[in-house]
Design a protein around this nucleic acid. Sequence first.
RNA 1: GGAGGUGUCGCAUAGUGGCCUAGUGCGCCCGCCUGCUAAGCGGGUUGAGGGUAAUCCCCUCUCGCGGGUUCAAAUCCCGCCACCUCCGCCA
Length: 424
Amino acid sequence: MIDLRVLRQDPELAREAQRRRGASPDLVDEILALDETRRSSIVAFEGLRTQQKAMGKQVAQAKGDDKVALLAQTKELSQQVKAAEAAQVAAEAAFTDAMALLPNLAAPEAPAGGEDDYVVLEHVGEPRDFAADGFEPLDHVELGKRLGAIDIERGAKVSGARFYYLTGVGADLELALVMMAMDQARAAGFTTMIPPALVKPRAMEGTGFLGQAAGDVYRLPEEDFYLVGTSEVPLAAYHSDEILDVETLPRRYVAFSPCFRKEAGSYGKDTRGIFRVHWFDKVEMFTYTTLEESFKEHERLLGWEKEWLDKLGLAYRVIDTAAGDLGLSAQRKFDCEAWIPTQGRYRELTSTSNCTEFQARRLNIRGRFPDGIRPLATLNGTLVAIPRTIVAILETHQQADGSVRVPEALQPYLQGRTTLEPIA
RNA sequence: GGAGGUGUCGCAUAGUGGCCUAGUGCGCCCGCCUGCUAAGCGGGUUGAGGGUAAUCCCCUCUCGCGGGUUCAAAUCCCGCCACCUCCGCCA
């Protein structure tokens, strides 16, 4: 939810933001009209309620015939109050529903347009030149098989398409990556968290995942639970309905959790291997801070993501996502895309979003400032999404004999192994 | 899953239909007093929304949440949620 005051004072700002996302600006005017209706219904209700309270006092003190007469009057007034209250509740709901549809206002710096209108901010490292090394790179599916690291056939047998087992050194690799990521985050001052992966609708709705992304979310209708697609959800909802002292900010959390995604609408995309799957584990960074600080914090989160990819020896580029590709909650988003040798292109490995006060308004997360109470800003950033990172590592660091070199920083977490060798 | 209990303004409590505009104590904040501190004295101290551009002021809502009964609900009734105790089941 965006700031209603801003919307009232400068609706053109919001209309323009909608246009830059490729969305309709009419929603803004719809909301303003509903806000007017809502306010007049409040005035009407409060007036009647004040009358009712005054008469209630008279009734309490009156006796005999006076009381009987007063009761007849208050009875009628009571009906009016009820009607006015119902009208007010309805107006409020109509307003809130419309407001929930309005995405965050994209940052002025975010490029206008859709998915393909991103701006490349920088390239780090050079894609590996396999021609110079004198061999054709294998893809991660083949490498995973030879190393005994990834079992896709049995994943499909047990759970279906887009499922997999990490086995042997593959499983070791996940645990190593998780520990290494946690160590980096802990050193940066993050509090380690293991959050629930099943959440109630409020948490999902509040983080903005029941908007356009709703089709991608698994739901347990029997219990009215959702399976989270990212630990951003339980981390954002962690402080819902709380007022945090501003001196305790920023609050930085890093969570390990499974992530579940239907991947609806991506039929035929990335069907080979474990690049796009229904379930994976992820280590996610999350920050609560002030709106003013959020922009610098966003840069810091990006910095930690880059530090991470640097340590893994991956070539990547950083993109500034276009307004239309921001999702409901984000004001600005940077993606780090690593070079995947057998795909011959850069693919998203991590993503960091500044949601400004958008999620905080929906989840009622506020800060106590010297001059009052205001919503906080929330930000999130991937440290490591396991399968994609494994894909990038295996393909990038493979050697002619089918073995894979282990990046130096990762070696201590893999029992000192410097290479992963094919089995049998 | 079953039985019972509890849920009031940061904490602890009072409040069994109208004088509750929710009292009191503790804590906290401001001031006074005071060699310093403590004590004492006075005032303030939930949050949301509306009137307003407004940190003043006025009003409405807020006693776990949602319904209902009533002219009137913290109080009575129903449903839900959370926590506690016990039983069952289970990794």
